[in-house]
């Protein structure tokens, strides 16, 4: 190559070879690609839900369906209260995950361990909330193929509402569960000094990406099912 190209290296020819165009580790790129495919899976679910909702005349009122919380009496009417607690649990666990990633960059093992434990506790708390909510709805007669809630305008509803609700929150809950398992494995590996030996905490960053994605999906699920 002539010195014309070498002179213009200031304009960063990322794809001419000899450089790392993404400048991130292989596993992290692959985690991003996986999350992208997962985003399309969740997107397909939520758009299917939206399509069915748009094609139906009536739909149950979420404020009538999700109005209870644990240890509340029969006639409680507290819409949005329980789900906002769930949302904040997930946001806070996402924050502790960022702190764990940051501690990992600083090679601060203690910080990683502490924040990973907080993240795992947050994940388990979220799963417990969801388990309670599913159980509560099931007792009210809601399940796949069963919908005890009438439409907001007082007309008879179909089972679409419960089918979508349980499928999508179930799929998200499964992601939370796998995230907790991954985080526990990361915690054990940290405690066994695996990352100290490798000299970097990149695995924590990849687990972090997954965990943030779980939080990201909840932002959409929460909005689509509980608010809209």
């Amino acid at each position: 190559m002539s010195n014309v190209t070498t002179a213009s290296t200031k304009e960063a020819k990322w794809w001419n070879g000899g450089k790392s165009p993404f400048d991130v580790e292989y596993g992290k790129v692959m985690m991003w690609y996986f999350l992208m495919s997962d985003a399309f899976t969740f997107g397909a679910f939520l758009i299917a839900y939206g399509t069915v909702r748009f094609s139906t005349n009536g739909w149950p009122n979420p404020n009538e369906v999700f109005k209870s919380y644990p240890f509340a009496g029969e006639g409680t009417n507290a819409p949005l209260v329980f789900v906002s607690i769930m949302t904040f649990i997930l946001i806070i666990s996402s924050v502790t995950m960022v702190l764990a990633v940051h501690a990992g960059k600083m090679m601060d093992k203690k910080g990683v361990v502490r924040n990973m434990i907080f993240t795992i506790i947050g994940g388990i708390a979220f799963l417990s909330c969801q388990a309670w909510e599913w159980n509560h709805l099931h007792h009210e007669g809601a399940w796949w193929g069963m919908n005890p809630f009438i439409n907001a305008d007082g007309t008879a509803s179909t089972t679409n509402f419960t089918n979508f609700f349980f499928t999508i929150t179930g799929f998200h809950g499964f992601h939370v569960f796998s995230g907790v398992v991954i985080n526990i494995i990361m915690l054990i590996m940290t405690l066994l000094n695996k990352f100290e030996q490798r000299g970097h905490y990149l695995m924590i960053e990849k687990a972090g990406l997954y965990w943030h994605f779980v939080d990201l999906v909840w932002v959409f699920v929460f909005t689509c099912f509980y608010l809209l």
Binding site: E140, N147, P148, I150, G154, T158
Partner: peptide, 11 residues
């Protein structure tokens, strides 16, 4: 439809 007590199904 009338809002029924718990346990009945709108369907």
């Amino acid at each position: 439809v009338e809002k029924k007590a718990e346990g009945t199904h709108a369907t």
